[in-house]
Nucleic acid binder design. Structure first.
Length: 365
DNA sequence: AAATCGGGGGC
DNA sequence: GCCCCAGATTT
């Protein structure tokens, strides 16, 4: 807060900051599907979709959700596989499961009355400080700052904050600063304005400092620290994984199973999967201990294998191969997998990696 | 506090 | 390749 003249009080600073950012917002804000929405349920949907997700990527999913589940009770009563199918391709699939879990909670336990405060919203599964603040401010005008990646960047730069955004002390500091700045504003507009400013003007790379309404007061600009702020302390490391998908086909049927557990892609479907600790060539894999005994003994006809380019996730590089088998007659009972008609395959939600394979192999015939 | 959970886009 | 995106939960 040293960026403003020392004689100014916090009230003056917050009013000046808010007025500047709201002026900018009124001129440059984008038209977005959820802009002007007053239904807290739909605002909630939009905010969950937009977690760690760009607006351009989330838009079509927002339309899909409000169309298929126009009310919270529609989402509560929907088939889980259909909800996951609507989320397919968006990533972080626990968001979809938690969304429906909380929709059931609101519908059944709260008699359909949507939580109407920051504190009550925080009790929903999948709702953290950001979403609770966003919904509370936009739907209920509660004066609580929604601190997302954009806001960290905008405040971090303008106020020259040296606290790291991925520490609890840093998060607390930013939240308190935001809560001061929002005090004299329409909370919903204020939060959306700061985020929009971060997305369009104070961007991570090549921010438009030359035309910035805060250029006179921005500490980062003054000290030439635009590239360094906001401060982050952690670094992510990736691990390699080696997946062998087994396509067990008959004429018109194929084997799939639903993933459970704490690994990636929980609640999505997949083909029988074997993971090996290191890279293995197809021939070596097929005659190895890793290839399931149950399948060795049932007269599989190996048609070929398709090698995918590494599938890159935030913490993993997945090297996948798809083995195509044909089998005469009935498909065997195998593990937790079940047999479906190939024509029904589009009803199930698959990871992007499998979707890519299906698209490719379909194209190739 | 650190690790994990996806997928896509910009450079 | 690296960084980041209208973050939250688990360990």
């Amino acid at each position: 807060m040293q960026s403003f003249k020392i004689s100014k009080t916090l009230v003056h600073i917050s009013m000046e900051f808010a007025q500047t950012i709201l002026n900018w917002y009124n001129i440059y804000k984008r038209e977005l599907p959820w802009r002007g929405e007053s239904d807290p349920y739909k605002i909630w949907i939009s905010e969950v979709i937009l977690q760690q997700t760009r607006v351009d990527q989330g838009k079509s999913y927002y339309y899909k959700f409000v169309e298929n589940f126009p009310k919270v009770s529609d989402l509560a009563n929907a088939d889980e596989d259909f909800v996951m199918k609507c989320w397919q391709g968006l990533g972080y699939y626990s968001r979809a499961r938690n969304l429906q879990f909380s929709a059931k909670y609101i519908t059944k336990e709260l008699n359909g009355e949507f939580p109407n405060s920051y504190k009550k919203l925080l009790e929903l599964k999948g709702v953290g400080p950001y979403v609770a603040a966003a919904v509370a401010s936009i739907a209920f005008q509660e004066k609580v700052a929604a601190i997302d990646g954009n806001v960290y960047r905008v405040l971090g730069r303008i106020f020259g904050i040296d606290k790291a955004i991925d520490t609890s002390a840093g998060k607390k500091y930013y939240q308190q600063l935001g809560n001061e700045l929002i005090k004299n504003s329409n909370a919903g507009d204020f939060n959306q304005a700061v985020m929009e400013f971060g997305a369009l003007h104070c961007s991570p790379k090549q921010p438009k400092c030359e035309s910035c309404p805060f250029s006179e007061n921005c500490i980062a600009l003054r000290d030439n620290k635009i590239e360094q702020l906001p401060v982050k302390s952690k670094k992510v490391k990736q691990r390699d994984r080696f997946f062998h998908y087994l396509l067990v086909n008959s004429n018109d049927e194929i084997m799939i199973g639903k993933r459970t557990g704490k690994d990636i892609w929980n609640s999505l479907y997949e083909f029988p999967l074997v993971e090996t600790p290191q890279k293995m060539e197809p021939e070596a894999f097929l005659s190895s201990e890793y290839f399931p005994e149950k399948l060795k003994s049932c007269n599989l006809n190996w048609k070929g294998v398709q090698n995918m380019k590494p599938h890159i996730l935030s913490h993993q590089r997945i090297h996948a191969q798809f083995y195509e088998f044909e089998i005469e007659g009935e498909l065997p009972v195998f593990g937790e997998y079940s047999v479906i008609k190939k024509k029904d395959i589009a009803n199930f939600a698959f990871p992007r990696l499998i979707e890519l394979y299906l698209t490719n192999s379909h194209k190739m015939g």
